[in-house]
Write a protein that binds this DNA or RNA. Structure first.
Lengths: 351, 351
DNA sequence: AGCCTCTCCCTAAACGATTAGAAAGTAGTG
DNA sequence: CACTACTTTCTAATCGTTTAGGGAGAGGCT
C-alpha cells in the first residue's frame, strides 16, 4: 500500500472532523446515525485500522497483562495460562507471557530486563510465578502496576501484595505419608533451586513426614530443566554413596522427565525397584509407564483466581482514575490466598 | 508514585533540551560525555523509563513478531517457539504468540479478529502455523507486514509468500510402509480437519502406502483437541461397523492423547491388540507405555528456518526505508522450502 | 420572543517520544 | 582577525489518536 490510511484521512474523505470520526469508530455518543454510517463505510473502503500506539499514548490505556514464567516447557504453565485466559477473555484485556528463563537459566539481569520491558510497554498488571526481587516489586509499584504472585512468595517486605499459594507443606506431608504407608524408608527428593519459593515448603513437608515415619530423606538439587535433572541424578547414582533409594520424589514436571529418562536408560523398574511420585499433575501423567502418582495443585483454578484478583484491582484503578484519584492498587488482606493440593494415586508409587 | 517521569522532566532537571536527553539515552552521537553522564544519572534518580507507545508512534518501529498457533497444548508449538526464540534472541525483536483456537475451536471470525489485532499493534512480521484466508494475507500485505507459513500451505494465489513445509507425503509413505512390514492390513487414520493443510498430505501418503501394500485405510475426522479425539474414536468403536483396526495412526499430539486415553480405558493392549504410530515427536513419547513410534518433523529447526527467513525480510524492509523506498517484503523463490521428516521407531508399532 | 434543553459537531490541545534544520560555541589556520 | 570546520545544543514540528470546551441549530415551553 502506498500510504496507510489514518484517522485524518477518514476525516478528509468524509468531510467530518476527527472528533466525529473517532467517536463514530469507538461507538461513542454524540454522533448521528448518518455520520456513523458514513464513517464506517469509508473506514471499510480505505482499509483503515487504528494505530494502537497512538491510542495508548493518548489514553494511557494499558490493556495487557503479563505473565512471568520460568521455562515454559513446564506443563504447569500451560494449565495456568488456560485459567488466566479464561478469565481475561471477554474482558478487553489480554495476556502476554514473558519467559524469564528462556535461555535455560535464570539470572537477575534477565529479571531486571524483563521488568524494565514491562514498564516500558506500560503493562496493566503482572502475574508472576517467580519471586521477584524486592527492588523490582517496588519499581512496579512506583509505576502503579499491580502484581499478583502465584505459587511463589512475594518478597518479605511486600506484605500487602496479593498471592495465590498452594499449601505445598500439607501436600508434601500427604505425599510422604503415602510413601510411608508403602513401607518405604529411604527417600530421595530431586529438587529445583530455592529461588522458586515452593521448594522450601515442599522440602519442609517431606522432611517432617520422613521424621514422623522414621524414613531417611536425601535432597538432591538440580537446575530447573530436564537435562540438568538427568545429569544430576545420573551423577548421584554413580557416586559411591549414591545408592538407589526406595522412593524418588520429583520436584516438578521437567525434573520428572529427567528422572524417567534416567530410570529408563538404566532399566530400573518402577515401582518394583524404585517408587516414584512427582509434583504437578499434567495431561500425560496417566499414560506414562507406569501411570504416575502425582501431587495435583490444580493450576488452572489458580490461574483463574489470580486473574480474577488482578482484574478486580485493575478495574479499581480505572474507577479511581475516572474519579481523578491516583490509581494506587487496592490490595486487600483476603487477596493472600492459599489453596490445597491433592494426591492423585496411580501406580508409580506401588499401588 | 505521584507522577511518572517523562523525558520532559529529565530535560527540566538537567537543564538540557529534550533533543540532547533523547540522544544521550539512546546512545547516539552528538552528545558530550559530560551531558550524557548528567542525563543518565538523572534518569536513574528519577526512575525514568521511556514510554514505548510514544517511541513506536514516532519511529514507526514495529519490533515484535507474532506467531499464530492453534491450540497451544500441542507440544509441537513449544518446540517451534524454542527455535524461533533462539533466532530472535540477540536481535532487538521479540516474539509474541497469538492463539487462534484458544477457545477450543477455530472460527473465521477469530482469525479475522486476530489479524486485525496484529495490524492494530503494527506487528513487524507474522509466522503462522495455519493457512490464513486469502483476504487476510492480502490485508497483511497491504500493511507491508511479511508473513511466513510454517507447516501450512499459503493460500493458492499467494504464490510468492515464504513457507517452510515438511514433506508430509513422503513421511506418511514411510510410516505406512513400516506398518505394512509388520503385516498389518487394516489401518485407521485419526485426523484433524482439513483446514490444517498438512492433513491432506498426510492422508495422501497413507492412502498411497495402503494401496501399494494392499491395506485398507479408514480415515476418521475429529476436531483438533484431545477431548474430541477421545469422543470420536470411542463413538466409532461403538458403532456396528467400527471394529478395532490392527493399526492406528494419530494425526498429531493432542489426538494421540485422546487415542491413548481411549485405549487405556478399554484396556486395549498396544501393540499386541492394536499398533500405534503418531505424528510429531515430543518429549514424553519415549516414556509412554509403550514407547511411541512417531514421525519426527524436527519442529525446532523449522522454527529456526522460519525466523531466519522473516528476519532477513524485515531487515530488508528497514534497509529500504532508510533509502526512502517503500518497504515491500522481499520474497524470494528459495524462501519456499521443504524439509524432510524421519520415522523414529520405538515399540508402539510392534517392534 | 425569550429561554432552555438537546443533539451533533468542531477547534485545538494534549499524550511522550524522535529528529530535521538552524545556531551557538570552540578551535584551528593562514 | 576573518574564515572554516567541527562539536554540541536548541527550537519546533511531527507521529495518530482522544477529548475538554465551546458553539450552532432545532425544537419545545412559557
Amino acid at each position: 500500500m502506498a500510504k496507510k490510511p489514518t484517522l485524518r484521512d477518514l476525516s478528509e474523505v468524509t468531510g467530518l472532523s476527527s472528533y466525529t470520526v473517532s467517536r463514530a469508530l469507538s461507538n461513542g455518543a454524540d454522533v448521528s446515525d448518518a455520520s456513523r454510517k458514513l464513517v464506517l463505510k469509508a473506514a471499510r473502503e480505505l482499509g483503515y485500522v487504528p494505530n494502537r500506539a497512538a491510542q495508548e499514548l493518548r489514553k494511557k490505556s494499558r490493556s495487557s497483562v503479563a505473565v512471568i514464567t520460568a521455562s515454559t516447557s513446564n506443563y504447569y504453565y500451560l494449565d495456568l495460562m488456560k485459567g488466566i485466559q479464561r478469565v481475561l477473555r471477554g474482558s478487553s484485556r489480554n495476556a502476554v507471557v514473558a519467559d524469564i528463563a528462556a535461555e535455560g537459566v535464570y539470572t537477575p539481569e534477565v529479571e531486571d530486563a524483563i521488568v524494565q520491558d514491562l514498564i516500558q510497554s506500560r503493562t496493566a498488571g503482572v502475574i508472576t510465578t517467580l519471586t521477584l526481587s524486592a527492588e523490582n516489586v517496588k519499581l512496579l509499584e512506583s509505576w502503579d502496576i499491580p502484581v499478583v504472585f502465584v505459587d511463589s512468595a512475594p518478597p518479605e517486605d511486600a506484605t500487602r501484595v496479593p498471592s495465590i499459594l498452594t499449601d505445598n507443606y500439607a501436600a508434601s506431608i500427604k505425599a510422604g505419608g503415602h510413601l510411608a504407608e508403602h513401607g518405604y524408608t529411604d527417600w530421595l527428593f530431586l529438587a529445583y533451586p530455592g529461588r522458586w519459593s515452593t521448594r522450601a515448603e515442599r522440602e519442609r513437608g517431606l522432611r517432617e513426614a520422613a521424621d514422623k515415619h522414621g524414613a531417611a530423606l536425601q535432597v538432591l538439587e538440580t537446575e530447573n530443566d530436564s537435562d540438568s535433572a538427568r545429569k544430576t541424578l545420573s551423577a548421584y547414582l554413580d557416586t559411591p554413596g549414591g545408592a538407589l533409594p526406595r522412593a524418588i520424589i520429583a520436584g516438578n514436571n521437567p525434573l520428572l522427565h529427567g528422572v524417567l529418562t534416567v530410570l529408563q536408560q538404566r532399566e530400573i523398574a518402577v515401582p518394583t525397584q524404585v517408587a516414584l511420585i512427582a509434583f504437578d499433575e499434567f495431561a500425560w501423567a496417566p499414560l506414562l509407564d507406569p501411570p504416575l502418582t502425582v501431587v495435583d495443585e490444580d493450576s488452572e483454578s489458580i490461574g483463574v483466581l489470580a486473574a480474577q484478583t488482578l482484574t478486580r484491582i485493575l478495574d479499581g484503578q480505572l474507577e479511581a482514575e475516572r474519579r481523578g484519584e491516583p490509581p494506587v492498587p487496592d490490595y486487600r488482606p483476603e487477596d493472600r490466598r492459599e489453596v490445597t493440593a491433592d494426591l492423585i494415586v496411580r501406580q508409580s508409587c506401588g499401588c
